[in-house]
């Protein structure tokens, strides 16, 4: 996918739903009124992780500005490790677009964990290029969407070198009239042998009227690769719900227990203890209001 230049002040540069990559997320509609400079938070940065270095990065957004537009580029050096934990905790009328590109080097590790409660329009894109052999990439995420919130998690992973590993585990909950979008593509170039790529997306739709749009794609041009993707979207297991109720839990308690448990594994996989605690705290706090029917 070619990265189209986007100028938030120029509506003619906005993608439309006719663009395949944007068919589930209508930016033009979200930005019907072109934002004023004062309303926009704009960030563009290039971050270099030197060879052998280990960096743990925490990003959180409480969305003080009405519109957020971020472009980040990460260059992860040889044998370096970057862990990126992102909490998108924005108000319901926020509009945000975040795009990051990541380039790996031989033996490097990139791990990303994104947690979102959505916004009026929220898109989080990550474009990873396995530019070094034997790099390891993990891109996990969880979303809990309610009301009319919209969250779009778009990931592109390009295996350009041999023996690259990619693992993705995305879990989502949607209720009310919320919409979750997951577009994940793994592209394995000719010659990128030994690639091991796995993508999983699982979502629960908690009531009629909420939507999940999922588009998982694998495109493979190398011979000796292992690739798999799994995508499941469904309702909460009614039998499990009944089982909990026969043990004395009322329906809201049982639903809360089961749906909370559904997204927790994504947070529990965070190795950094302090950040894991932060994310768990965020999810616990969200759970208090999210799961109330």
């Amino acid at each position: 996918m070619s990265l189209t230049a986007l100028d938030i002040f120029d509506p003619s540069s906005y993608p439309t739903r006719r663009d395949e990559e944007w068919k589930y997320s209508d930016l033009s509609r979200a930005l019907r009124v072109v934002p004023q400079a004062d309303d926009v938070h704009r960030l563009s940065d290039r971050i270099v992780i030197a060879a052998g270095e280990t960096v743990v990065r925490f990003e959180t957004s409480t969305g003080e500005a009405a519109v957020t537009h971020e472009d980040l580029h990460f260059a992860v050096g040889e044998g370096a490790r970057l862990t990126r934990v992102v909490i998108l905790d924005e108000p319901e009328d926020a509009v945000s677009i975040r795009r990051s590109t990541v380039e790996t080097a031989p033996g490097s590790v990139f791990k990303q964990y994104v947690f979102s409660t959505g916004a009026r329009f929220q898109r989080f894109e990550t474009h990873v290029t396995h530019a070094g052999h034997g790099a390891e990439v993990e891109m996990n995420g969880a979303y809990l969407l309610k009301d009319k919130r919209h969250f779009d998690l778009t990931t592109r992973v390009n295996h350009a070198e041999i023996n690259g590993i990619t693992n993705q585990m995305i879990k989502g909950l949607v209720k009310d009239q919320a919409t979750g979008v997951f577009q994940g593509r793994i592209y394995v170039e000719r010659g990128a042998d030994g690639t091991d790529a796995r993508m999983r997306h699982q979502a629960l739709i908690l009531n009629d009227g909420a939507h999940v749009r999922a588009k998982p794609e694998l495109e493979i041009y190398a011979d000796d690769v292992q690739c798999a993707h799994g995508n499941t979207i469904g309702a909460l297991d009614e039998s499990a719900l009944f089982f909990c109720q026969t043990r004395g839990m009322d329906e809201p308690t049982a639903r809360a227990l089961l749906t909370h448990a559904f997204v927790m594994p994504v947070a529990e996989a965070i190795e950094d203890e302090a950040l894991r605690a932060k994310v768990l705290e965020f999810l616990e706090r969200e759970a208090e209001t999210y799961h109330a029917l």
């Binding site: 499990a240 009944f242 026969t246 004395g248 329906e251 089961l258």
Partner: peptide, 27 residues
Amino acid sequence: EVHERAAAGLYLSFQYPLEIPGVPALT
């Protein structure tokens, strides 16, 4: 309701107890 029957003291042991992913048995 189902949970009220449980609280009143009725317990149904399932022929095939369900798996509850993500919820530790103690919790």
